[in-house]
Design a protein around this nucleic acid. Sequence first.
DNA 1: TATTGTTATACTCTATAACTATA
DNA 2: TATAGTTATAGAGTATAACAATA
Lengths: 161, 161
Amino acid sequence: MPAPRKKAAVPAVSVPPSRPDRLDTRVLEALVGYNARRAWLTVSTVFAERMAVYGLKQVDFSVLSLLAHNPGATSRQLCATLDILPPNLVSLISAMDSRGLIERRPHPYDGRAIGLYLTPAGESLVHEAERTVVELEAEASAKLTARERETLIRLLQKIYH
Amino acid sequence: MPAPRKKAAVPAVSVPPSRPDRLDTRVLEALVGYNARRAWLTVSTVFAERMAVYGLKQVDFSVLSLLAHNPGATSRQLCATLDILPPNLVSLISAMDSRGLIERRPHPYDGRAIGLYLTPAGESLVHEAERTVVELEAEASAKLTARERETLIRLLQKIYH
DNA sequence: TATTGTTATACTCTATAACTATA
DNA sequence: TATAGTTATAGAGTATAACAATA
């Protein structure tokens, strides 16, 4: 807390007379959900700008990065891991296939499944993209020390793990 | 970090043979953006369930809570504070007006602006909703100590402030 | 000329139902 | 019967352009 100002007996007065552009957000800012969303929004804005160069959206990057470290993963696995629904992954995968970033190979022993693999072009792109993401993350969390950043990530994971 | 396992020389082997439902997400989980989004998603799911009782979405709650502590705030101020675009607030405000939760009064000295105020019904609803949100937040962050929760919020704010 | 609130509209994201082919 | 991938489609969320009234 920046200054335990005794709650200032919240003025029963209306806002208009002074009308500062800053509203009292103390209640919302006491919520994990609100703060997590705002922080994500900030980071994701920078993310979107930097990734536009590669023609990648956030979910595209997630998929490519997962495939880089999990070659042969299936759509179903990607959906389960990233918490997205199968129908919404189809066009995404199909587009990256058309771009020559990934390729689909029939699964060795399950005729229904399709293994997804990065092409050399995909490998190369994801390698550059991952480097940019690391840079961008460092900028976005520039106000945090390395130790604070680790703590932040650890605590966030405690929420959703 | 749970165990600095020397990166295990990431198996160049494909996934299919074993095919565990858990993919290697270490790269993504090292990113603030990814973790903030996942954590928010978790909290917001619980939030949506609990707030459905009151017929409120997250943004509705934010607006009502802001009006509770900033009576007479204008649409423009709500938009600036919550980072939403004016056209997208219109139907939202209008719906809450129809529900009798808020009322619009002409601004005392700016004929363009409209001051927004909670009705008694709105006050009552937001009071109950805020109590439920506090409960829900406690549940969602049950794996954190009170001190960790404070730290988490403080660090998230450092990202977006 | 700039700002508040508004309409209309488009685009993206997310969700549901139903189909096919394999298991 | 259940699962992987797919199609079509609906709904929610977010974005831009343009306008009237007021400053």
